[in-house]
Design a binder for these strands. Structure first.
Lengths: 143, 143
DNA sequence: CAGAATCCGTGGGGATACTG
DNA sequence: CAGTATCCCCACGGATTCTG
């Protein structure tokens, strides 16, 4: 029923207001574990974090605590490059950088929700298939 | 409007009866060029080839001519492992192997179509964003 | 705080050649 | 025909350290 807590929630757009979760890794799988993937390994999780509005780099680092700053920057830059995310430097305080979804980025939320719903629905089947297949392989090797 | 001919057709399920296209690479992008991806680099194209029914390894090699046999085998094995594809060896003739979508694999077609529709719809925007971003970066380096 | 720089290991993906 | 078997490369992701 779960892998690191996944899936608990497929409702992109409905849930998660304001405070970001402590660790998104435990709530959602990184996309590399998912047959349906969005961009690079962390793109889906990043987009999800930006769903409710702009977030600062340091804010993103909390739910994405397992992502090193370098990789997080790389992913954000890639999203920016594709016009899915905007990076805004606010001169107010010292070094205040915010990331925000563009309209294009927002439009991704819908197919993303569909894909996540699919995964949530079929997660058990996927796990079962994998296990069965791995077991068969193990037996094969053994005898 | 196109990159290697993409997108020309987003209708998974509606188009492409019987004869497989000569080169799917020119008709669809490998998923690494796509913000929405399915499995590994070639999974989406493979699934698409299996949409209309079982296909033999050699049949798949035609539209996927740019995929080396090793990589094609790897991808197929991964899909099999996740229960999305079934590999069947038919003892009729010598070495007759067919790949076929499972029910689980078939159920992927729907969110896949949604994702592909998104990409087709926003492809121009994506390209534009990339180009604009790359141009800006070039100017930045120059001056 | 928001990264940049550096170093590094792994492996995904490709080319080529070979086989039952 | 349906793959293996090798070899190779570099891009991805991670750890750590440094900086304006």
């Amino acid at each position: 029923m779960r892998v690191g807590g996944y899936p608990m929630d497929t409702g992109y757009g409905e849930t998660m207001r304001e405070p970001l979760p402590a660790d998104l890794f435990d709530e959602l799988c990184p996309s590399s574990l998912n047959p349906i993937r969005f961009g690079d390994k962390w793109a889906a999780l990043i987009i999800r974090c930006l769903e409710d509005g702009p977030r600062r780099f340091s804010e993103l680092r909390v739910p994405l605590s397992r992502v090193t700053p370098k990789v997080l920057t790389q992913s954000l830059r890639a999203l920016e490059r594709d016009g899915l995310v905007i990076r805004a430097v606010r001169p107010e305080a010292a070094r205040h950088v915010e990331y925000e979804l563009t309209a294009l980025g927002r439009s991704l939320l819908e197919p993303m929700a569909a894909a996540c719903a699919w995964t949530a629905q079929h997660w058990d089947q996927l796990l079962e298939a994998r296990e069965a297949h791995d077991d068969a392989a193990r037996l094969d090797r053994a005898g």
